[in-house]
Design a protein around this nucleic acid. Structure first.
Lengths: 315, 315
DNA sequence: CTGTTAGCGCCTTCAC
DNA sequence: GTGAAGGCGCTAACAG
C-alpha cells in the first residue's frame, strides 16, 4: 500500500498544523534543493524575454504581462525565473531547457525568433509562447486575435470619415504582420475613394524621426494605425512637432491599451488585449504540458477602445 | 594540494572547449539541482516586490528597475527569481529566506514595510533593499538622494517665479517622506512672499479625483511638485480637466524620469534617478554580503531634468 | 596525476 | 503501523 506522501491528506489537519508549528518554532525549514533533486523537478518556471542586442526591456505591454505571469505562477505554487535572452535566442533556450533550472518555459513574445522556437519546441515539450499563432505552427502559443483587432480599428477610422490611413510597424514580428494583414483586409473592403495600404516601417525607437520625414515626403494622409501604443504615442508627438494636430488633422489608433494610453494627450484610441487572461492561459497550458498532455494554441479576443485621438474631424 | 575545481583555470582552454563540444554533442547537460545541493547554494537571487493587497505592479519605475536587475543578475552568472509579496511582507520574506530557494534577496522598494525589513534583516544577512536610507537603519539600502533631488526641483520652481507650490504624495512611504522634507527645506529658504508647505495626500490611483477636488477647495497655487511621475502625469490631466493649463497656470515637476515623462504633453520636468547604477550596486552589495562582508548603504545622486511642464509663465 | 567514494537533504521503497 | 536504507547527480576529498 502507498504510504503518506508529503502533503498527503491522510494526516488530520490539526496534526499537520501542530507539526508545522513545532517545526517553525525550532527553526527547521525544508531544503528545497534536496527535495527538488529527489523529485526531479524544480518547482520553478522560466520566463524568457527575447530582446535585440543592447536593448533594454521598455515595452510596457510585456512588462504588464510579466506582472500577471508573476502573479499566476506564484499562485500555482511555482517560482518564476526571469531570463533576458538576446536574439538570436536558440542557444540560450537550448541551454535553459537542458539545464534543469526550471520545469518549463514561457517565451514572452516571438520577436523575430519563429524558426528558433520551432526548432527548440520540437525537442523540448514544456514550452509555451506568447505571440501570434500561424496555421501550421508546431509550438503552442497564446495570443490576441491580431487580425480581427486591426480590422476593427481600421473600420472605426473609415466610419469616422478617414480615407487615407498609414500603418506603422515592423512587419518582421509575426504579431505586427498579422495586424498589418488585418489592416489591409479592412482597406480591401473599404468604400471607393479610400487610399490603398501604406506601410511606414518603424519601431518605437525609430518612429519619431521616421514620422517627421514621412510627413515631409508623403504628406497625404489623414489617419495612422500604429502596431502598438508606444509607436502611436511617439507618432503623435512627431506629428505635433511637424505641425499636424491629432485628431483634427490626423486620427491615431494604437494597439495594446497600455496604462499610458488613457493618460496621454489626446487620450489614445487603441485595441485592448486581455493580458491577465493571457497569463492565466499560458501558465495553465504549460502545467498541462508538464503533465504530458497535448495542448492547442489559444487565441484571445481583442477589444477596440475609442478615445479622443480618433475623434471625427470638426467641420 | 588542491585539485582542479569545476571551472578551474588549470585546464587548458582548447581542452575545455573540446570537452564542452563532446558533451554538447552527446546531449549531456549538467544537472543544476544536484550541483547546487552539493555546493549548498542555488546560484539564484530573489527579487521581492512588495505590493498592497490586490494591486498589480504598475509603477514603471520599479519595472525599469526590474529590467536592470535582470540584466545585472544574469551578467553575474546568477538566475533571478521574481516574487510578488503582499504587504505585510514579513512572513513571505522569512519563508523565502529560510527555504534556500535563493542565495540572497533584493527587496524592490520599502513600501510601508520598514519594521518588517528591520526584523528579517537582523537574522538574515544576504538582504539588500532599494529605497530610502534612514540614519539609524539596520538593513543595507541603495537609493537616490531624495531630499537633495526634491530641493533642486523646488528651487527650480522658485527661480522660475512660482510662489505657491503644492506637494502631492503619500508620506507613509519613506522615499516620499524624504522628498517631502526636501520640499519643505527648500520652502524654508525661499524668498519672502512664498506660500508655506501644502500637502495633498494622494497616490497615482487617487490623484485624478483628489486633484480636481483640491482645485475647487484650495485653488490658490501656481505649481505642483509630485512625489513621482505617475502622479504628476495624472495631476496634469486632472488640472486640464479643471480648466487649468500646464505650465501656463500651474507648473508641474515629477520624480523618477520614467520613459513616458519625456513623451507626455507637455513634456514633464522631473528628477532623474540612475536606476542602472542602482541595480549594479544592489547586486554588487548583495554578492559582497554573500561572501560574509559587511556593506554600507549607498546613496545615489539625483539629477533635475527641465522640460516644458515647468516653463516660466508668459506675460 | 587518475580513479574511487562519501555524502549534500530529501522522498520512497522495502523490511520489520 | 514504524524504522532503516537506497539513491537522485553532483563535487571534493581521499587513496592509489
Amino acid at each position: 500500500m502507498r504510504q503518506h506522501g508529503a502533503g498527503s491528506e491522510l494526516v488530520p489537519r490539526h496534526k499537520r498544523e501542530e507539526i508545522a508549528k513545532l517545526a517553525s518554532e525550532s527553526g527547521y525549514v525544508l531544503n528545497t534543493t534536496a527535495r527538488n533533486l529527489r523529485l526531479k523537478r524544480t518547482q520553478a518556471l522560466s520566463v524568457v524575454v527575447p530582446l535585440e542586442a543592447g536593448q533594454m526591456l521598455r515595452d510596457p505591454c510585456r512588462f504588464e504581462m510579466l506582472g500577471h505571469l508573476a502573479e499566476e505562477i506564484t499562485r500555482r505554487g511555482y517560482g518564476m525565473l526571469l531570463q533576458k535572452a538576446t536574439t538570436p535566442i536558440e542557444d540560450s533556450l537550448e541551454e535553459l531547457a537542458g539545464s534543469g533550472r526550471s520545469d518549463g518555459i514561457v517565451v514572452l513574445g516571438q520577436s523575430t525568433q519563429h524558426v528558433a522556437l520551432t526548432k527548440v519546441a520540437a525537442r523540448y515539450r514544456p514550452l509555451v509562447v506568447w505571440g501570434a499563432h500561424a496555421r501550421k505552427q508546431s509550438y503552442c502559443t497564446v495570443g490576441t486575435e491580431n487580425g480581427a483587432g486591426a480590422r476593427a480599428a481600421v473600420e472605426h477610422l473609415l466610419q469616422t470619415g478617414r480615407r487615407n490611413i498609414v500603418f506603422i510597424g515592423d512587419t518582421d514580428v509575426p504579431e505586427v504582420q498579422q495586424r498589418y494583414e488585418g489592416y489591409r483586409d479592412a482597406l480591401a473592403a473599404a468604400p471607393s475613394g479610400t487610399a490603398g495600404a501604406r506601410l511606414l516601417r518603424a519601431t518605437a525607437q525609430t518612429v519619431y524621426e521616421a514620422m517627421q520625414v514621412y510627413v515631409r515626403e508623403e504628406p497625404e494622409f489623414d489617419a495612422v494605425f500604429a502596431a502598438n501604443d508606444l509607436i502611436a504615442i511617439s507618432a503623435v508627438r512627431a506629428l505635433s512637432a511637424s505641425g499636424r494636430a491629432v485628431p483634427q488633422d490626423v486620427a491615431m489608433v494604437g494597439f495594446d491599451d497600455i496604462p499610458t494610453a488613457a493618460h496621454s494627450s489626446p487620450a489614445l484610441t487603441t485595441v485592448r488585449q486581455d493580458l491577465r487572461r493571457g497569463a492565466e492561459l499560458l501558465v495553465g497550458l504549460l502545467l498541462q504540458r508538464l503533465k504530458g498532455e497535448e495542448t492547442a494554441s489559444q487565441v484571445l479576443p481583442a477589444e477596440l477602445i475609442v478615445r479622443e485621438s480618433s475623434a471625427p474631424r470638426q467641420n
